[in-house]
Design a protein around this nucleic acid. Structure first.
Length: 292
DNA sequence: CACCAGGTAATTC
DNA sequence: GAATTACATGGT
């Protein structure tokens, strides 16, 4: 991948990008704070900044409002540019025809490496919820308690709040934002972290089992949400979140015997191996696309 | 007006 | 232990 920095214009141009479709990647349900501003053009808030990303063709991507230090410190890792998805897809395509078909439809998806605290709260909100309302609730939390970054075209953009910024926020405050019964879960997550019972930074080096059982100490975090956090924020591509869509696709294309979430997780882990989480995203995207 | 949405915790058998 | 139910809210 070739990188061209235009410091004067605060632009970063990527050439020879492969296995990347910005629309698939940013609309496949793994992230909630990107907005489509135009064809193949998105604006989002990440790492305390508002940035724009545009894909010109299969191999060319431009970042706006981004300088070299920011790109190198955050975006290379965020978009997982260090990972060769061709290798992962070749591995998965060998496994079965269903995932092969899913890759034919969503092979441009990359797993974003997102900020752990924001991702944790985002997926606590996601439970038994729909994606538009998840996004709305996250924006409500950010604009109420995050820091104002800048105003663009009359619209204010806020960073996602830190645990410290949420220290005095009560269950009732969360409820007022419209998050519903997840209010107490959000409060529990913040308290757990502020009291040091869970240190997200330290968990970066923990193995899957320890990481999952630690995350599940938080009220409102069960197996599925823990796996989402592990996959989308802890760079572990073997995590396989079992949600309603994946359940449907497993029953339809793999086995009708697999009904319990625990059994599906066990099957998928063995069947897909170390890249199970990537397979999950391809399957999730495909199932939703064909309205399975 | 039921039913659903990237589930989980509490309750019950 | 394995199955059932309640849970906020907004959209069909």
């Amino acid at each position: 991948m070739k990188i061209i920095y235009n410091e004067a214009k605060q632009e970063v141009i990527l050439d020879q990008v492969s296995d990347f479709d910005i629309t698939q990647t940013l609309t496949c349900g793994q992230c909630f704070r990107w907005h489509e501003m135009g064809r193949h053009l998105f604006r989002g808030v990440v790492f305390g900044r508002v940035i724009d990303v545009e894909q010109l063709d299969d191999h060319t991507v431009i970042f706006y409002r981004v300088d070299r230090p920011f790109f190198e410190a955050h975006l290379v890792d965020y978009f997982d540019f260090g990972t060769d998805y061709r290798v992962i897809k070749e591995d998965l395509i060998e496994r079965d025809d269903a995932v092969k078909q899913a890759i034919a439809h969503g092979g441009g998806i990359r797993i974003l490496n997102q900020e752990p605290f924001e991702l944790l709260l985002s997926f606590i909100i996601s439970g038994n919820n729909n994606i538009p309302r998840i996004a709305k609730s996250i924006e409500a939390v950010a604009s109420a308690y995050g820091s104002l970054i800048e105003t663009i075209d009359g619209k204010a953009y806020y960073s996602f709040p830190t645990p410290d910024q949420l220290e005095t926020v009560t269950v009732e405050d969360y409820r007022q934002l419209g998050v519903g019964y997840r209010d107490k879960y959000l409060r529990d997550a913040v308290e757990t972290i502020l009291e040091g019972r869970i240190d997200l930074d330290r968990l970066l080096t923990a193995d899957y089992k320890l990481l999952k059982e630690t995350l599940m100490l938080i009220k409102g975090v069960g197996s599925k949400i823990a796996d989402c956090v592990i996959l989308f924020a802890f760079k572990n591509k073997s995590a396989f979140p079992v949600d309603t869509w994946v359940k449907k696709i497993i029953r339809t294309y793999y086995s009708e015997e697999l009904t319990k979430n625990e059994d599906i997780l066990k099957f998928a882990s063995e069947h897909f191996g170390v890249h199970a989480g990537v397979a999950q995203q391809y399957l999730f995207y495909y199932a939703r696309k064909i309205k399975l």
